[in-house]
Every structure is written in C-alpha cells, then in structure tokens.
Design a protein around this nucleic acid. Structure first.
Lengths: 220, 220
DNA sequence: ACTCCTCTTCTACAGCTGTAGAACAGGCAT
DNA sequence: ATGCCTGTTCTACAGCTGTAGAAGAGGAGT
C-alpha cells in the first residue's frame, strides 16, 4: 500500500515539474492526485510544510534509487584504488546513460529538483533537507581521487556542477532544442562524450603550461 | 532619463531573484519600484505580458553588456585563426573572472535568468525571447573551432552547458557553501581552474584510447 | 452498546492576485 | 479657451490561495 503522504508528495512533484513552483497549491495537489479537496491542506497545513515534504520526498526517492541502484545520483560502483583511462571511459558511459534516464523517466523529478534548488536560495532550510547531491558529490570526489586528480575535492565539485549543467541544459535550456532528443542512443553518446572529456580533463592536468618540475610530478 | 519600462522590469528582475517567480505580482513590482499601486498593471495588463517584458529586459541588458564589453555572456575577443594553449588559459582566466562577476554584481540577473529558463519549460514563447545564450553559444563554437576541436558545435554546446552548471552550482547549489566565496581571488582562481580543464578537455581529445591513426591526426 | 481516537472530508473566511475600467492630469494643436 | 490625446493614478471585483476549524466515519478497546 502506498501511503497517502507519498501520493500527495508525488503529485506535488509532478505539478512543480509541469507548472513550476507557482502551480504548487494545496487544491491543485488534491486535484492532481485525485483526492478530495482539502486533503493536502489537512496533511500539510502550511504551504511551507508542503514544500518541505516535497523536497524530503525527492531526497527519499533518491536514497531509494541509490539503494536499488536504479536511478541514483551516481550509481558508479566502488572504485579500485587506481582507475585507468578505460575505467574512466566506462564511468563516462554509465554517467551518460544515467543522465539520459534523468531526461526521460526521471524528467519530472529532475525539473522539480532544479525548481527546489532555486527555491532554496531564499529558503535555506530546504537546503538542509535536499542535502543537495551530497551522495554524488562524495562519490565524485572518491572517483577523482582514485583516478589521481591533483585536487580531488575541488575537481569532484567541478565535476558534479558540470554534469548538473549538462542535465539542466538538456532539460530546460537551449540544449533541449539543439541536442539529440533524449532517450536515443545518440543522446547517450553525446552525453557520454561530454562526460568523458570532463573526466579526462579533471584527472589529467594540462601539461603544456606546466613548468618541468610540475610536469614530472604529474606524470609520476 | 530612465524609462518607466526599465524601472518596472528592473524591479521585476530583483523581485524574482529575491523571491522567485511566485513573488512576481503586479502589486509587488509597484511596491519594489516605489511606484503607485496599479502602475505595473497599467503597463503590462496581464501577468504573461509582465513576464515577457522581464525576459526581454534580461536579453536587452545582456545585449547592452555585450556591446559595452562589461558583463556579457562571454566577452572574449575575436579569435585568431589558431588558438594556442596559452590563449586557452587566457580565455579560461577571462571566463573565470566573468563568472565571478555574475556571482556578485550580476547575481540578481543570473538568478532571474535561471528562474526564467525554468519557466520557459512550460512557456515556450519565453524561449524565443531569451534566445537563450545564443551569443555565448555562437562564440563558444567559434572559439573551439579556432582551437581545433574535433566537433566544435557539439563541444561548444557542452562548454556553455558546463559553464552554466558551474555558475548555477555557486549561485544556488551546494557550491554556494563549499566553494570559496564569490568576489575573492580564490573564487576566480577556482573557477578559472575548472574552465581551463574544460577547455583543454574539449579541444584535446583523450589520446590514450584512440587508435594510432586518429592519434596521429589529432596531433597534426 | 458506548466511548474515544484517528483519519478523512467539508466548509468558512480573510487576504491576495489578475484584470478591467473609471477618473484625473498635463501638454499640444486648433 | 476648448477639445483632445497620452500617460498616469485610483478603484472595483471576481476568483484563487492559505489556513483554520467543524463535521463525519470507521475501528479498537472497554
């Protein structure tokens, strides 16, 4: 049995994805979920409570996916101590496929998430609930450390920011028009290309402009 | 003299940055701009018209900045036919500094823009007005072509998506907490590092996994 | 049976929002 | 001055939103 909380918050996510935060009202959620008017208002008296529940639901869904390995923030496996270039290519392909799923099956959740992140700008308490990609961030840092990045923490943050940017661009930006349509092999290939470039860049510092000493260190 | 249209739309941008799209109401704009109640409603009868004016104003401001070279989408100069690695580093530094300005002086505009891009998901007509980063996209493609990228069009799109992602992460995401604070040299340096990695990645295809023939071609 | 408790549904209401139109003011041309 | 026109300010009002509380329904325990 699906709890009523889940029904309500899932409807809220769909609503936000379709109409933005402005469409999120108690009555609209009732209608969208097919529940009698007043239900959402009874469960979440204030609008703030409703939004927090929505954000919590997003976090819970991510956690569930992470556990199930189906549509997590990053379902790359635990890393061997040293990642080879071939490993990185594999990770890039997995990430590309993952992004493509966020663009198709996970589209509503992805859109709702971006709306909530933006909302968190003026409502800091949301940020705590969102935990904002903590899991994927930690994982990215670990991966880049295993791949021998010079500054894995910073590089990990750059990586997730750029990957988020790729996703956002396809979801809402101009990429939605110019890039190959989501759900196609071309889309996955294009995303994989981008992620692979990112990974190689973040693990291999540009040699040409390093002074000899640094260059030797980077190679070692 | 500043036209009333500008006063209204600028107030609207500030409002959206502070409170999100939900805060954008005719009366709130009046109050924010210090105009008598009803003014905004007289200038833009419907809310849709108001939003479109807001988006148009964003586009106009960008165009003005582009012309003045002060805070444009990308104020990198016209490129010489062949870009060297040192040129790329210069572009990275300029882009890092530019992003830092978007985080400080241009913060409201950047936040309002992201809100509008998200809004454009359900209101396609906004996308046309936004032109959504067309200028910077074109410029990125030209730059990557000059730098000898294999597929400059796709690489250009990846580049702007990632740079937008870096910006969004600092503005609204977790980067706002973990990264060095905007306006500092550290922030600029960190962003420059990320952009430099991006540029080198997108212009230099990863050699290790290419077959010898491609490798030779890429080098030439 | 009755009571109590939780969950659910319905209704009320004050305040806000979108939109329209009336009233007003100043300047220009006749 | 008179009339007209553009730009401004004020007011009206229907509909929606957030929030609260009353009314109802069913089940568990006595």
């Amino acid at each position: 049995m699906v709890t009523r909380y889940a029904v309500i918050t899932d409807a809220a996510i769909a609503l936000v994805a379709e109409q933005g935060m402005r469409g999120l009202t108690h009555r609209a959620v009732d209608a969208r979920a097919g529940l009698p008017t007043g239900t959402t208002s009874a469960y979440y008296r204030t609008r703030k409570a409703l939004i927090e529940a929505l954000v919590q639901r997003l976090a819970d869904l991510d956690a569930a996916d992470l556990a199930a390995g189906s549509l997590p923030s990053d379902d790359v496996p635990a890393y061997p101590p040293k990642l080879t270039a071939a490993d990185l290519d594999g990770i890039a392909a997995a990430t590309g496929a993952l992004l493509d799923r966020w663009l198709t099956d996970g589209r509503d959740r992805a859109l709702a998430r971006y709306a909530c992140v933006l909302e968190a700008t003026h409502h800091p308490e949301l940020r705590d609930i969102l935990g904002h990609g903590t899991a994927s961030r930690v994982q990215a840092r670990a991966m880049l450390a295993a791949a021998g990045a010079a500054d894995p923490d910073r590089a990990g943050d750059h990586f997730v920011a750029c990957v988020d940017g790729l996703l956002f661009d396809r979801l809402a930006g101009a990429g939605a028009l110019t890039a190959p349509p989501p759900g196609t092999p071309e889309c996955r290939a294009d995303l994989t290309t981008a992620v692979r470039a990112l990974l190689h860049a973040l693990t291999t510092p540009p040699l040409r402009n390093q002074r000899p000493r640094e260059r030797r260190a980077a190679r070692g």
